Amino acid sequence: MFPQSTLTEPEIYGVLSNPRRRETLAALWDAETTYTLRALSERLATAESGLDPAPRALRESVYNALHQTHLPKMDALGLVAYDGDRKTVTALPASRRLTPYMDVVTRAGITWGEYYRALGLVGLFATTTTLADVPLLGAVDPLIPATVFLGLFAVSTAYQLTGGRVRWWLTRALRR
């Protein structure tokens, strides 16, 4: 079978309706490499249980569900390349089309949308209070908070768009 080139909205929501499929995509995007089924199931089981290592029964349950249901479904839709014989899985470029449908949660436990809204509101508040001559803040030039918060938006956007690869590169460079 040839993978579909475009997914319909019901297919997209069908894939993303399951937490294990969402976590699978997030793990594959994060790693940007081929996962073994065993390693992927252990990662998902750890995330589900909050224990490292996750209980054996949960790891086996996740392994079986991925192998029998989730990965074949995503493979048929052209989102991942799943080799059931070798038990390897890789995200395909088409899977990135689902990114707008997934609200990614930061390490702080909030979504990027919430983060940007809060950053915008705080920046707007800081800038307008300097313009309104509020005591103590009225002495600050309004360009200072505006510039600081625009800089924070730029740095945050760069971090989000690179998916933390800069952090990965720095960690790798420091190990040498």
Rank of each mutant, 00 (worst) to 15 (best):
V122I: 14
R56L: 12
W112D: 07
T111P: 09
A54M: 10
L136D: 02
P100K: 10
V140W: 03
A139F: 15
A39Q: 13
P100W: 09
D141E: 13
E60N: 14
V140D: 04
V166T: 14
E114I: 02
T46G: 12
H67G: 12
F149W: 08
F125S: 14
G84L: 06
D52A: 12
L66Q: 03
S61H: 11
T130A: 05
D52T: 11
V166N: 11
T129L: 09
A139T: 13
T111R: 10
S49G: 09
S95I: 05
V155T: 06
T99C: 09
A54E: 04
P100I: 10
A45V: 01
G113S: 09
G138L: 04
P93F: 07
L124F: 08
L152A: 11
T127I: 02
V155G: 00
P55F: 01
A154C: 05
A45W: 02
T106Y: 02
A139K: 14
R165A: 15
E114F: 02
L131P: 01
L51M: 15
A158F: 05
D83Q: 06
Q68M: 04
G84A: 09
Y63D: 05
S41Y: 02
E114M: 05
D103A: 12
L40G: 02
L124Q: 01
V155H: 03
S156N: 04
Q160N: 13
V104K: 15
T157M: 12
R107A: 14
H67R: 15
L71W: 08
A54G: 08
L51K: 15
G138P: 04
D52K: 09
V89G: 01
L98K: 06
L44Y: 04
G120K: 06
V155K: 06
A91C: 02
F153V: 14
K87G: 08
A132T: 11
L143A: 13
G113Y: 06
T88F: 05
D103W: 04
I144H: 07
L119C: 00
V104L: 13
